[in-house]
């Protein structure tokens, strides 16, 4: 698969401080999540990808275009929804989105048509002639999304798109992002500190902390791998039962209170476990796939970073 973003030792200095340091990775999924606590450098990374900050070292590429030399091509291909309020004063939503479409290179007629289309798509169709200044926070978020997609970008960068939204508005935003992902026409980078938003929409996740990459996760693969880990609560299980399961080729461990953790091997299905249990008169009271949620992944990444720091401190 062609890479969407390549980071090659990217470092960014701001105000004499190193904000991002030696970022290296290749991301190619349709939806990419940037996760991290506040101040981790997520927005700085986005700003660097858009050419707002010049790299102090290394470089980054989007669809093969280098941020140092091909920023205009990158901006041609991207749509950006910033984190903060950003609108043009004393302008209706349709004029605002049309203006942004034209600045991206659309002819006026096409920009106007796509402005109407984008505003209907995000759910502001009925309010599109209203002044932006009269919009609520949620509506302004949607207007920002509309201006980001009006020119049909190949890469949509969303910086904290659900900030300040109430639960129904948040759900709507997540649904819109998922719909656009399904359209197959564009890649999405979603920057958020809300794990649920990223988990619901993203396939790849990059976790940042203090300007460094602390973890990369391919959520699709994680989800597939999770299907192999099973936890069972049984009644009547004994050594023979676990022995029979191991004979199927599954790794198995008894954790006490009749709880068994096992890893399914290739070709072994759940029904095989029920068959073995029936043969040995064992009741399976509960059977769960282990769910290594994004929260687990995130916390592990944060903990491992702390452990690394702790060791370093110990050495000092």
């Amino acid at each position: 698969m062609n890479s969407v973003i390549e980071l090659e030792g990217l470092a960014i200095d701001l105000g004499g401080r190193r904000i991002l340091d030696d970022l290296r990775c290749t991301l190619s999924a349709r939806t990419i999540g940037l996760l991290g606590p506040n101040g981790a450098g997520k927005s700085t990374l986005i700003n660097a990808l858009l050419g707002f900050h010049k790299p102090a070292a290394g470089t980054a590429r989007i669809f093969g275009h280098d941020v140092r030399s091909g920023i205009r091509q990158i901006r041609n291909l991207t749509g950006y929804m910033p984190e903060n309020d950003a609108f043009v004063a004393r302008m209706s939503a349709v004029s605002y989105v049309q203006l942004m479409g034209e600045l991206s290179g659309l002819p006026p007629e096409a920009a106007l048509e796509r402005a109407h289309e984008a505003l209907f798509h995000v759910g502001l169709g009925e309010a599109r002639y209203r002044q932006l200044g009269t919009y609520s926070l949620g509506m302004r978020q949607l207007a920002k999304l509309a201006q980001a997609i009006a020119h049909g970008p190949k890469l949509l960068i969303l910086d904290e798109p659900t900030n300040g939204l109430d639960p129904p508005a948040r759900q709507r935003m997540i649904r819109l992002i998922s719909e656009m992902r399904e359209s197959g026409d564009l890649h999405i980078i979603l920057c958020s500190h809300l794990l649920r938003d990223v988990e619901e929409t993203c396939e790849e996740v990059l976790i940042l902390k203090q300007g460094r990459i602390v973890h990369y996760a391919n959520l699709e693969e994680e989800r597939r791998a999770n299907r192999k880990f099973i936890e069972m609560e049984t009644v009547g299980a004994n050594g023979t039962f676990t022995g029979d399961i191991e004979k199927l080729g599954c790794a198995c461990a008894v954790t006490g209170n009749n709880r068994i953790k096992l890893v399914l091997s290739e070709g072994v299905a759940i029904r095989d476990l029920y068959r073995v249990a029936a043969d040995r008169n064992v009741q399976i009271r509960r059977l769960n796939y282990r769910r290594d949620s994004l929260e687990d992944i995130f916390l592990k990444a944060m903990e491992s970073e702390l452990a690394v720091k702790g060791n370093a401190n110990g050495r000092l």
């Binding site: 707002f52 205009r72 041609n76 950006y80 910033p82 903060n84």
Partner: peptide, 15 residues
Amino acid sequence: GDLANRALTLYLARP
């Protein structure tokens, strides 16, 4: 107006 409403980010995120 553009600076007060942070619209410059939107202008400059484009080509």
